[in-house]
């Protein structure tokens, strides 16, 4: 059993194996994200009812919440990939960490932007220095920090290690983001969706939101796997398997 697990682990670390497997997965993820996001967004924009308090501005939720989910999940992925790279010196893991940084920054930007244009009609302002919003801005700078730091070294493995350490240190920000709406008085509304209780939202709004969240997960992994594929080919540029596929 244990030996099987190690075999699996080593295969996972093999760039060639990753490249072959991911060429099967990425088309499915593409189909899944188009179907789920397409259905969810059209449903949310055109068919879901208006919110009693917020009017139609609440329709931004169908982008804002999925983007924020993935901005946070993407940080876990980046930090865990960095940790695995540090502990087991797995190159593929550092590649995943490097690929997750710009993608996470993009999703954090989208959640900040969609939040700002939702804030204007709802709170009367695009921006407040509120705990939730400020900690999300810090998340954005942490992603940028990892991008800059990994590229700041001549030796690639020094950049890998420095980036991974910053990513791990930055994880202290994650529980702050989650708890910010409970710990501080905030303009930001508390979580609509909790694992421990039913969503505080009507089914006619909750179903399209669920589709959008699942779709955004699929789209995130589609983009991440594709980015890793390019980086894997670049890393193994002198290997025989790369010459074969080109």
């Amino acid at each position: 059993m244990a030996s099987n697990r190690w075999e699996w682990f080593h295969r996972w670390g093999s760039p060639k194996w990753y490249y072959q497997k991911s060429s099967v997965w990425t088309p499915w993820l593409a189909v899944l994200s188009v179907v789920l996001l397409g259905t969810g967004l059209v449903w949310g924009l055109a068919f879901a009812p208006e919110d009693v308090k917020q009017g139609n501005s609440y329709r931004i939720i169908f982008l804002h919440v999925p983007a924020a989910f993935l901005a946070l999940a993407g940080y876990y992925i980046m930090a865990i990939a960095g940790a695995i790279g540090l502990i087991w010196r797995m190159k593929l893991s550092f590649i995943a960490m490097r690929a997750a940084a710009p993608l996470g920054a993009l999703l954090t930007f989208i959640s900040l932007f969609t939040g700002a244009v939702w804030g204007k009609p709802t709170w009367g302002t695009y921006w407040v220095w509120d705990a939730r919003i400020t900690s999300m801005l810090i998340l954005f700078f942490l992603y940028l920090g990892v991008i800059v730091l990994t590229d700041a070294f001549v030796r690639k493995d020094s950049g890998d290690k420095a980036g991974a350490i910053l990513a791990l240190v930055g994880t202290v920000n994650i529980p702050i983001i989650y708890k910010s709406v409970d710990w501080w008085n905030s303009l930001h509304q508390p979580a609509t969706i909790k694992l421990t209780s039913a969503p505080s939202m009507d089914a006619s709004m909750w179903y399209p939101l669920l589709l959008c969240i699942l779709g955004m997960y699929a789209f995130y992994f589609f983009l991440l796997l594709r980015s890793i594929r390019t980086r894997v080919v670049e890393q193994d540029k002198s290997k025989a398997w790369v010459k074969e596929i080109l």
């Binding site: 967004l41 924009l45 055109a46 208006e50 009017g55 139609n56 501005s57 329709r59 931004i60 982008l63 804002h64 983007a67 710009p102 993608l103 993009l106 930007f109 989208i110 932007f113 969609t114 244009v117 939702w118 204007k120 009609p121 789209f219 983009l223 594709r226 980015s227 390019t230």
Partner: peptide, 29 residues
């Protein structure tokens, strides 16, 4: 649908910027 009861500019700005961001990311990739 376009007007969204006056909230159109906010809603469409959110959807437009998100869409364009993903297109730019895909092109860069």
């Amino acid at each position: 649908f376009i007007n969204m009861g006056g909230h159109g500019p906010y809603v469409w700005a959110a959807y437009g910027v998100t869409f364009v961001s993903f297109v730019i990311y895909l092109a860069a990739q």
